[in-house]
Design a protein around this nucleic acid. Sequence first.
DNA 1: GTCCATGTTCTTTA
DNA 2: CTAAAGAACATGGA
Length: 280
Amino acid sequence: MPELPEVQTVVNTLRPRLLGRTIQRVTLNCTDIVQPPDADLARALTGRTIKSIDRRGKRIIFTLDSAEQFYVHLGMSGQLTAVQAKDAPFAPHTHLVIDFPSGVQLRFRDPRRFGGVWWVGDAGDIAGDMGPEPLAIRPAQLARRLARTRRAIKTALLDQRLLAGVGNIYADEALFTARIDPLTPANTLAAAQVSRLCRSIKLVLHRALKHGGSSLRDFVDANGSSGRYQNRLQVYGRESKPCRRCRTPIVRQVLGGRSTHFCPRCQPADKKRSAGKRSA
DNA sequence: GTCCATGTTCTTTA
DNA sequence: CTAAAGAACATGGA
């Protein structure tokens, strides 16, 4: 469920409920969602106060009063909610529960278990080898990074080392908005195309954020509310439906193992490249 | 039963 | 060595 707009929406809705609160109890129902495996999360967290909650890429970073940190990655189906324990039924696959004195519970639920909790401690190494933030990147910087790979631009946008936070939905949406064929090799994009793409990425992410993210299946914010941007998607999940711009049916094609949706008319293949493909 | 899924990481191949 | 493609992970819904 989670790309940058969804993750940021979770952060925004968690903050008012958790900032400044002290962790009273930690209940771990499934130990294999914690990394590193030998981290004693309960011991590390109990009695600490949540000082800040931030996002980096798709990671939700909690900083404690001790300056130690941990982060949650929602994977594909993860949910992080902050609820009043007494009036929230307990859903299956709730792997971690953190109780606060106010009766609020922070719950991490993740049926597919692709997500998890990473204890960082005071190592300060949250970013790892993640790429720059999509909302802050400048066109020239994006161009430099794209020039390093011949992969299809769609595939390149999903590489978190190249750019951290864009996922399958917003990569497709941004390429549609920029009118770029997803199959274009990243290093063959003209400077003007990269500028347009840079602007489109920000536009699409900002819009999605404004609408609380996209709830295609599992996504809810910390209050349990769904996003609304799924209703405004231009190409993602719209195979065979008419393009909202030109009515041409949207095409779905598997690229790098992921579904890719685009309008063949609004996002035409580069003439030289499609000619090359035919002769090959 | 089949196919598909908002993500990441490991393995295989060239 | 690197770059890229594919499989794997676990679960559920259509």
